[in-house]
Amino acid sequence: MIPHRDKHVAVIGCGYWGKNLVREFAQLGVLRIICDSSQQILQDLKTKYDVEAVSDFAKILAMQDVHAVVIATPAPTHASLAVQALAAGKDVFVEKPLALTLEDALLIEAAAFKSNGILMVGHLLEYHPALVKLRALVAEGKIGKLRYIYSNRLSFGKVRTEENVLWSFAPHDICSILGFVGKLPVSVQAVGSANLGKVEDFCLVNLEFEQIKAHIFVSWLHPFKEQRLVVVGDSGTLVFDDVSVDAKLTLYDQQAELQDNIPVLKLNSKIVIPLEAASPLTLECKHFLSCVESRETPLTSVKNGIDVLTVLQSAQESLKSSGKAVYLKEVQVVNG
């Protein structure tokens, strides 16, 4: 077991998102070393957090006092770095997406199995107090039987060039929706376009499950920020609005029924649900450290990452074929 107080964590990739992970693990008192290709980034963070900084990943793999590696590099590098770290006996926290192909994801899974290492995927939203509470309310039957789920993740920037908006934004929402339904969709459809460069900057994804439907809208060319998840049941609706300051989770007690063959809508109440005041990123990082110490399977495990990647890859295939439906029974996945 690795006590939380020991400095045993290395963060690989300290740029746009990685610097936040550096901050969290430093504040938790476990940051041993950081690694990045930019000397300027390394110097800035080395000074700010009084931490050792290197540009050579191989050096970290050889360090006996580094037991856990956090990977926040560009998505195309995730698979290679994760496999190397696992082979070196390290536990791994890899940012989403787990990989860019199912083949690479399965290689990571095999490496984790062989090394008996912890492999956690950075699906941050799963640790958000609002989503945790939302899941609990759905499980309690507060909105009745699920009918429909949709998610909007929209903003004006940051525009990426390594990955399109589907791969950058949608993993959060795919992961959330799969968690509610408990299984992969029957089919996936996706449409979008590249308006500024070579990668799509907006995308609409339709997911068809056996009992319900869901859709995801993602864009980084939207005039204002919106991060909203709506879960509709037959007796109510739950809305998770992550942009809202004082109403992140709202329960609408509402019903739609037929009276004399005429649809009648009833809104009985609207309740803002109180939530724990905690940072999702802090909770996520603490969960990883807990799994490293206890050897328990993370909430967002490699299987979770493979399921999300299965949907992502199917959506990408549909996107390339101008929205043709991709049926997942035709996608070969072996995730344990």
Rank of each mutant, 00 (worst) to 15 (best):
M63S: 11
Q39T: 11
E24Q: 13
V66N: 04
Y49P: 03
H4I: 03
L42H: 08
A68L: 07
D6K: 15
L42R: 14
S37P: 01
G29E: 07
D56A: 08
V9A: 05
Q39E: 15
L61M: 08
V69T: 12
H4Y: 12
E24P: 02
L61D: 04
T73F: 01
C35Q: 06
G29A: 05
S38W: 07
M1A: 14
C14V: 15
R5D: 13
H4G: 07
V66K: 04
I12M: 07
K46D: 10
I60T: 06
V30M: 05
H4C: 05
A53K: 04
M1Q: 12
I60S: 04
S37H: 13
Q64S: 14
W17D: 02
K46M: 08
F57V: 14
W17F: 13
K59S: 12
H8D: 06
K59C: 05
K19I: 09
L31P: 00
I71T: 04
I41N: 11
W17H: 06
D36Q: 06
H67G: 13
V9M: 02
V70D: 09
K7D: 02
K59P: 02
I2K: 09
M1V: 10
A72N: 15
V30T: 14
V51M: 04
L45D: 08
G15T: 00
V69M: 12
G18Y: 03
V54C: 10
I41Y: 11
K46I: 00
G13L: 01
I60V: 15
H4E: 12
D50S: 14
I2V: 14
L42E: 10
D36W: 03
W17C: 08
D56C: 06
Q27D: 11
K19R: 15
I41S: 10
L28V: 01
L31H: 00
K59N: 05
D50Q: 14
E52H: 12
I33Y: 00
D36Y: 06
A62R: 13
I34C: 01
V66A: 04
M1T: 13
V69N: 10
A58T: 11
Q39A: 13
R5P: 02
H4A: 13
S37L: 15
S38K: 08
D56P: 05
Q27C: 03
C14F: 10
D56V: 09
Q43S: 15
L61E: 08
P3F: 09
